[in-house]
């Protein structure tokens, strides 16, 4: 099932690169159709603690975990916020696929279980253990591949009922990533705020 695929994935896929499309569906409000926001970009990671989301459309935003610091750069707002990775990374959904060295490390922050197959994917369910309660549930979806299952989707349901689904495509397993792939230098003139 999905949990086995997650275990194999965490053990065997040390680096990865993929395109992603993210569809965020806001909880339907009375009398309004549920609002959907779509964004897309590229995703790279290198276990155990570096990853990068480069959002390209509809606006440019970079989320880079360089091993120590989690950088958030909004190009239009010209603002960079920097947070200590140790403080924020544990229970973020990206940690599920990119950060944990093995399943046991994941279980420090998530309760893991198999979830029923859906949309032609096998799913693993991860319920955050942290009490901040921002996330209701996170699920990781795998598509049966020739050898090992392939990461296909990450689904995040927050405590307000907002659903965010990241679908991955053109997934490269264990690519050689240049040394500076996860370096982030705030651009000149940008507001840099450390929190």
């Amino acid at each position: 099932g999905g949990l086995k695929s997650l275990e194999v994935f965490v053990k065997t896929v040390n680096t990865g690169r993929a395109d992603f499309t993210q569809v965020v569906t806001a909880p339907a409000k009375a009398g309004q159709a549920p609002r959907v926001k779509t964004s897309s970009g590229t995703f790279e990671f290198s276990r155990p603690n570096r990853f990068k989301f480069v959002y390209k459309k509809p606006f440019e935003q970079n989320i880079v975990a360089d091993g120590q610091t989690l950088w958030l750069y909004d190009v239009d707002l010209n603002q960079v916020t920097a947070r200590q990775q140790s403080k924020v990374l544990g229970s973020t959904p990206a940690a599920l696929i990119a950060a944990a060295p093995d399943l046991r490390a994941l279980q420090a922050d998530f309760t893991l279980a198999d979830a029923p197959d859906k949309d032609g994917l096998q799913w693993a369910a991860a319920t955050p253990k942290s009490k901040d309660g921002q996330l209701q549930s996170v699920r990781v979806g795998f598509r049966a591949g020739e050898q090992a299952a392939e990461l296909a989707a990450l689904e995040i349901l927050d405590s307000f009922g907002q659903r965010s689904v990241l679908s991955f495509s053109r997934f490269e397993v264990n690519p050689a990533l240049p040394g500076n792939s996860f370096q982030f230098k705030p651009p000149a003139g940008a507001d840099v705020i450390r929190q």
């Binding site: 965020v24 964004s39 989320i63 921002q134 995040i156 927050d158 405590s159 307000f160 907002q162 965010s164």
Partner: peptide, 11 residues
């Protein structure tokens, strides 16, 4: 208010 990854921070 939403977080950069699309979850809701506060209503």
């Amino acid at each position: 208010l939403y977080t950069p990854v699309g979850t809701t921070a506060a209503a």
